[in-house]
């Protein structure tokens, strides 16, 4: 059963990776990375049980806590680049 679950998660990771490669907008890529992160947490947890190494759950916990920072950093990046574009009109970057 762990195998079924992990196979489904790996398949989903492939789908998310395809979405990240296809784009087409930048937001799709961020969405795909976010999905990929959640699936990584799940896969880490399931494989930890599959291998019987449940002391390695710390790793999934680390991702569950930290993955969020990447998305927020992207947001701040968008926001500051918009502010910059608004502050300096006419400058195309």
């Amino acid at each position: 059963m762990y195998i079924v679950a992990s196979l489904a998660i790996v398949m989903t990771m492939c789908l998310a990776l395809t979405r990240a490669l296809l784009g087409p907008t930048v937001y799709d890529r961020v969405l795909a990375v976010n999905m990929f992160g959640t699936k990584t947490v799940l896969l880490l947890a399931v494989v930890a049980f599959l291998n019987g190494r449940t002391d390695f759950l710390d790793l999934a916990l680390a991702y569950a806590l930290i993955n969020f920072i990447g998305v927020l950093a992207v947001l701040v990046f968008f926001q500051s680049s918009r502010e910059r574009a608004a502050g300096k009109p006419g400058e195309q970057r």
Partner: peptide
């Protein structure tokens, strides 16, 4: 576990196949 795996997979298929960003 199996049900969760199914939902995860459905989400992946949806994210790939839906037509625009918000539906994805």
């Amino acid at each position: 576990l199996v049900g969760g795996a199914l939902f995860v997979l459905i989400g992946g298929i949806g994210a790939l196949r839906m037509p625009d960003f918000f539906t994805r």
